[in-house]
């Protein structure tokens, strides 16, 4: 089966402080679908996303977004091409209010409040005073205000209560239904597999397993081994 790839990585290799953290990674993440990237901590998933978004340099390989090569662009150009990246650890601008966090991205902030009505009441609160869940909503809203065609998310659920994680994931599902491509790095494998379409497992810097989410869900022993190998 061939899928029309929106984000396509091939042979991506990333070096950090002299050691290869990501080795020869190939991933196809189609538009309108959620692609899940699983793996134990330290497997190199964050490094991979950072490389694709332009936070750190990539040593080798290629990354195509709708066919145009990303790796020669700087962060701003990649963003303008339609790539959005939600970093790990809820990177709100702590000294800015909720509204300011949004307005610096786009003056049409009302869209954000449609996605997350919870934030309306917190409009003038400093982002540092939000709860973890609200911060993650803010970060997600900020990324979506950029009107991306492809969204990469690193650890959506980190430190959040299960209920909020569900809420955020269901939003992703509906956004994907509207055509957004998503590459999601997630520590809670089962949660991610339930909502995703395709999945890759990364360990020790390489992709060790790939397939549709339902395949992986139906074969937990293989998934388990991929984690523990």
């Amino acid at each position: 089966m061939t899928i029309s790839a929106d984000l396509e990585l091939a042979g991506v290799t990333i070096e950090r402080a002299g050691s290869l953290v990501v080795r020869d990674v190939a991933i196809k993440a189609p538009q309108g679908k959620i692609t899940v990237l699983l793996g134990p901590n330290g497997a190199g998933r964050t490094t991979l996303l950072e490389g694709v978004a332009g936070v750190i340099p990539v040593s080798e390989g290629s990354a195509l977004l709708r066919g145009s090569p990303l790796l020669d662009m700087d962060r701003l150009q990649r963003q303008r091409r339609g790539l959005s990246f939600v970093e790990q650890g809820r990177t709100v601008f702590a000294g800015l209010t909720v509204e300011e966090n949004l307005v610096i991205v786009s003056s049409r902030t009302q869209d954000a409040y449609l996605w997350f009505p919870e934030l309306v009441k917190r409009k003038d609160v400093l982002a540092s005073n939000l709860s973890g869940g609200e911060q993650q909503m803010l970060v997600l809203a900020r990324a979506l205000l950029c009107k991306p065609s492809f969204l990469m998310i690193d650890e959506l659920s980190l430190g959040l209560a299960p209920l909020i994680v569900q809420r955020l994931l269901s939003l992703l599902v509906s956004l994907a239904r509207d055509g957004l491509g998503v590459l999601l790095v997630e520590q809670y494998a089962n949660l991610a597999l339930e909502i995703g379409h395709y999945a890759y497992v990364m360990n020790h810097g390489s992709i060790v397993l790939g397939g549709t989410c339902s395949e992986l869900l139906s074969d937990p022993t293989t998934l388990h081994e991929a984690y523990l190998s």
Partner: peptide, 13 residues
Amino acid sequence: KSPEVIAAYLGKE
């Protein structure tokens, strides 16, 4: 193997 741990790690409620 305890259910709480599996829930904490894999996110099942």
